[in-house]
C-alpha cells in the first residue's frame, strides 16, 4: 500500500512538473504584453514588475482590433460553410460503406488535406490575381476550405460510425424518408460530434498564417498576420507581438478545456477514438 502511494506521488509530481515546463514559455511570453522595454531586455531577468498597458494603447491606435474582427469573420464563415457542405458527406461515407468508388473518393478527400499549403498557395495566388479575389474575405474563406472541409468530413465520419443503425431503421419503419430520418433522428445525436469537429475547424482557420499572409492584403489582415507586421525597420515590437500571442491563444485554451476528449480523435484524423 505504501509503495503504491509513494509511486503515485512521484508520478503526479513528474506530470505536474512536465505540464509546468510546457506552459512556462507561453505564460512568460504573455508577461511581455505588460512589461516595459527596459524590463524585457533586462539582464539578469526581471521577475517582478509593475504592469504597463502602453502596448495595448499602441494596438488600438494602429487598428489592430480590426485584425481580431477579420479573424473572427473569416474563421466563422469558413467553419459554417464547412459544416453545411461536409455534414451530409461525412454521414454518407460512414453509412454507405459499400457504395462504388467509396474508397477512392475518400482517399481523394484525404489527399486534399495532406497537401502542403505552399503547393496550393502558388496557383491560388495566380488564380486570385486574375479573378480579383486577392485581399478579400471570400478569397480566404475559399482557401480555408482546402484544409478544413476534408478534415471535417474525415473526422465527422468517424463520429458517424458510432451512430446506432437501429434508430434509423426504426425511424424508417415509422414512415420517415431517408432524409427525414437523417435530419430528425440522427442529426440531434450527431450534434456533439459536429460541434467538436466544427470548433476544431474554427481553431485551424483561426491559427492559419500562410494563406492569410500571402492571399490577404491591406483589407483582410488576420491576427496571425499581425505578428510579422510588428517586426519593423525601427525594431521589433515585442510587447505588441505578445498581445497578439495572448489574444490568439486564449480562445484555443478555452476550446482545449471543453473539447479535450475529442481533440485526440481530431488531430489523428479519427485514428484514435477520443
Amino acid at each position: 500500500m505504501h509503495k503504491s502511494r509513494a509511486n503515485s506521488l512521484i508520478f503526479t509530481t513528474l506530470s505536474v512538473a512536465y505540464a509546468a515546463l510546457i506552459l512556462f514559455p507561453v505564460f512568460w511570453m504573455w508577461s511581455y504584453a505588460f512589461k516595459s522595454e527596459a524590463e524585457m531586455f533586462a539582464r539578469p531577468t526581471v521577475w517582478l514588475f509593475r504592469p504597463t498597458f502602453e502596448h495595448f494603447g499602441y494596438m488600438i491606435e494602429n487598428g489592430y482590433h480590426h485584425y481580431l474582427v477579420n479573424s473572427l469573420i473569416v474563421s466563422g464563415a469558413s467553419t459554417a460553410l464547412v459544416v453545411i457542405i461536409g455534414t451530409p458527406a461525412a454521414y454518407a461515407f460512414a453509412r454507405y460503406r459499400d457504395m462504388k468508388f467509396r474508397d477512392d473518393l475518400f482517399l481523394f478527400v484525404l489527399a486534399t488535406r495532406m497537401a502542403p499549403p505552399v503547393c496550393l498557395v502558388i496557383p491560388y495566388y495566380l488564380i486570385y490575381a486574375k479573378f480579383d479575389l486577392l485581399d478579400t474575405y471570400l478569397g480566404l474563406v475559399i482557401a480555408y476550405l482546402t484544409f478544413n472541409l476534408s478534415f471535417y468530413v474525415w473526422v465527422l465520419s468517424s463520429f458517424c460510425r458510432d451512430l446506432p443503425l437501429e434508430l434509423e431503421e426504426a425511424a424508417r419503419v415509422e414512415g420517415y424518408s431517408r432524409a427525414q430520418a437523417f435530419v430528425k433522428v440522427l442529426l440531434p445525436l450527431l450534434r456533439p460530434g459536429i460541434t467538436a469537429t466544427a470548433v476544431l475547424c474554427f481553431i485551424f482557420a483561426w491559427n492559419e498564417f500562410m494563406y492569410a499572409f500571402l492571399l490577404g492584403g491591406q483589407n483582410v489582415k488576420t491576427l496571425p498576420v499581425g505578428i510579422p507586421s510588428l517586426i519593423t525597420t525601427q525594431g521589433v515590437r515585442w510587447g505588441e507581438m505578445a498581445i497578439i500571442g495572448m489574444v490568439g491563444t486564449l480562445p484555443v485554451m478555452v476550446v482545449v478545456f471543453f473539447l479535450q476528449k475529442h481533440i485526440v480523435r481530431g488531430l489523428t484524423m479519427g485514428a484514435v477514438k477520443g
Binding site: 510546457i22 481533440i263 488531430l267
Partner: peptide
C-alpha cells in the same frame, strides 16, 4: 498538455 500543439 494540448496547448502547444493546438495553439497557432
Amino acid at each position: 498538455l494540448f496547448i502547444p500543439s493546438m495553439m497557432a
